Simulated scan of single mutants.
Amino acid sequence: MDNWAKLLTAVAAVLGAVAWPLALFLTALLFREVLRSAINRIPSMLDRVKTASIAGVKVELERVADAETEEKAGKVTPNQKEVAARIAVEKSDLGPQPLLKELDRLCLEFDALRRDFPSGDIRTRAMTRIVVQMRSLSPSLIEFLDAYKGSGSAGSRLAAIAMMQMVPMSADVSWLEGRFSSEPPFLFYHAALALQNALDSPGASEKRLQEIREAARRALERVKSFNGVPDHSTIEVLETMIVGTNSIAPGHD
């Protein structure tokens, strides 16, 4: 009797082990068209989620540009850092390519502004909106810094400067100093801000600090030697680094 009981228990265990896989197989077989349709919809659902995330990034960029007053727009603000941190979280889901596409759009927009609009306060404000948005994208794309530094586009080089403003330890002091010889005033004003942020960055060695101060001093001499009226905002930033003044105003184009 005991042997029969053991046999029945063993048979029941085998049937139990087989039943669930068999039931799943029959379910998949019966509903294979429905399952196939659902699986085929997964990529489009993911695309919609990604599209919504990209749209959210664009909204963040517009908001941060709207939030900065003209008086504060010249400097990196806590609000810009906060938006940059949120976008960095989005990058983990989106990957870098959508963010690069958005940064490249801003670069092209900057180049178009310089090409198509006359110099003046309106153009400067529009350019400042662009650089504020570039800053918010920059920490997420810092690994692409060299590509933007080497670009023939002024907008792309501005993006590189924005990266260095947001990540001061990445600042290429020699390259930034070179901006004062070859760029329009708007870019070398922001190059001056990048140098200042690098100077204020905690943990920088005394050798690097001295390198930055010397670069600022040479840049100041170069700006003051330009024909015509030198850019006052750039001079103020550079003098702050050399003699410790504190007045900083938005740059001009």
Rank of each mutant, 00 (worst) to 15 (best):
K149D: 00
G120M: 09
L176C: 07
L100F: 02
D111M: 05
D172I: 11
L137Y: 10
R135S: 05
G152R: 08
G95T: 10
I130P: 01
T124I: 02
S174Q: 12
L137S: 10
S136R: 09
L99E: 05
I130T: 13
G152T: 06
Q133C: 07
F117Q: 15
G155H: 08
A112P: 03
R123L: 14
M134W: 01
S136E: 12
E90H: 10
K101R: 14
V167Q: 13
S153C: 04
S138W: 07
M163H: 08
L99G: 06
S119N: 08
G155K: 08
A154R: 13
L176V: 08
Q165V: 03
R105K: 14
L94H: 07
E109P: 00
T128S: 15
K149W: 00
R114M: 15
S174R: 14
S140E: 03
S136I: 05
I161L: 06
M164L: 04
L141Y: 06
T124F: 00
A112V: 02
E177M: 09
A160R: 04
E109A: 14
A126I: 00
D104R: 14
M134V: 03
G150W: 02
S153V: 06
F110H: 11
L94A: 03
A162H: 10
L108R: 15
S156E: 15
G150E: 07
F117T: 13
A162F: 11
M166R: 04
V131P: 01
Q165G: 00
L113V: 09
D93S: 09
D116S: 15
E102Y: 02
E90R: 12
D104I: 04
R114C: 05
I130N: 13
W175D: 13
M169G: 00
I142V: 14
M166C: 14
D121N: 07
R125Y: 03
A126G: 00
S138L: 05
D121T: 13
Q97V: 03
D111H: 06
R114G: 11
R157W: 02
D121L: 13
G120L: 09
M134L: 06
L103R: 12
R157E: 13
L141D: 07
F110W: 13
S156V: 00
L100Y: 00
A112M: 04
Q97E: 13
M163A: 13
M166Q: 12
Y148G: 03
A154M: 12
P96T: 09
V131N: 10
T124N: 11
A147C: 00
M169Y: 00
M127I: 08
I122W: 03
Q133M: 14
